[in-house]
Design a binder for these strands. Sequence first.
DNA 1: GTAGTGATCTTCT
DNA 2: GAAGATCACTACG
Length: 186
Amino acid sequence: MPEGFECDVPVTELARRLVGARLVVRGSGGTIVETEAYALDDPASHSFRGQTARNAAMFGPAGHAYVYRSYGLHLCLNVVAGPGEAVLIRAIEPEIGIEAMVERRGLTDLRLLCAGPGRLGQALGITLADGGRPFEGAEFGLAVPNAVNGTVICGPRIGITKAVDRPWRFGLARSPWLSKPFAAAG
DNA sequence: GTAGTGATCTTCT
DNA sequence: GAAGATCACTACG
């Protein structure tokens, strides 16, 4: 189980708490700045139609990874929250192993290094084999801070066509590392 | 700055 | 056959 991880909370609350958490995969990573929640009774979720070979990890133990292929080419990383529930990691602030991430991405623009689920997957070198792996230890680590993050705001999720109205995207307000800015909150 | 499109593959109809 | 939790590249103001 990841450090500071609690599985007794709703997936939306977990998605909020994961903003600000430290993610490290094989020597690369940083602080999570953007997440999205996907629930079991959520038409936008891969788990909505029940368990399949692809989403099996989503029905596995909480605190493990769920990796899926998006649009045939990108690999996206999730944290399993409960049966059929997961939190999609959409963006991190690069802090550790930046050189390796730049090399994998083939980019010099740091702002686009990890700003988006597909970009993040490529930067961290995520593979389908990482699906079902527990977040534990230094190689595949996730540490959730105890402190409440007052700057976390929410908004509608990105790139979906169903359940568009659920404001289940969470992120650090005005962070330069977001895949897209949040609507101004005042 | 916005708008359109190709890449590439699993799942569902 | 069509759609999808995406990204990068191109054309055009």
